[in-house]
Design a protein around this nucleic acid. Structure first.
Length: 152
DNA sequence: GCCAACGTTGGC
DNA sequence: GCCAACGTTGGC
């Protein structure tokens, strides 16, 4: 079993939104980075743990826990010219982008802020806090997973 | 293959 | 709103 951190802007899709979805599950569209796509395609399995991270907002940080509920399949938002995530280079016959489904597990009692994560030497290797990091999907080690959730 | 220009991400 | 950092694009 693997662990992940996935970023979303809460104004677009937040942990609270996920909790309101039927079946508590929703597709995770809009990943447009090859490194992130490859991790989803090659490594993400049903049941993997996900730290739900709120980005580009008032309190950036880990806001909840989710799990992978469906493995990678074509991101259909790339096929729709009217969709903000449209990519003419991706077609149903030859999809360039993939998505997974995630299921709500729980919302944290408080958001564990980015600054707090940066302060912890135990998390030095975490991709999230590497300078200039732009991955929206990144791996988390079991040790990092336990450590972050213990901060709650 | 190089690299400048551009668009995006995301913290602040 | 600003801007640093990054990935992608495309001319050459």
């Amino acid at each position: 079993m693997n662990y992940w951190l996935m970023k979303s802007e809460p104004t677009e899709f937040s942990i609270d939104d996920l909790a309101l979805r039927p079946g508590l599950s929703e597709h995770w569209d809009g990943v447009r980075n090859y490194q992130a796509r490859n991790m989803m395609r090659d490594q993400m399995k049903v049941g993997d743990g996900v730290l739900f991270y709120h980005s580009n907002c008032e309190t950036p940080g880990v806001a909840g826990v989710a799990e992978i509920s469906r493995e990678a399949y074509p991101d259909f938002t790339a096929f729709d010219p009217a969709h903000p995530h449209f990519d003419p280079g991706s077609t149903p016959d030859n999809p360039r982008w993939l998505m997974v489904d995630v299921r709500f597990v729980r919302k944290l009692k408080r958001t564990i802020g980015l600054g707090e994560l940066k302060d912890r030497p135990e998390l030095d290797g975490l991709a999230l806090i590497r300078r200039g990091n732009r991955l929206s999907v990144m791996p988390v080690t079991p040790e990092q997973w336990d450590f972050i959730l213990a901060l709650e």
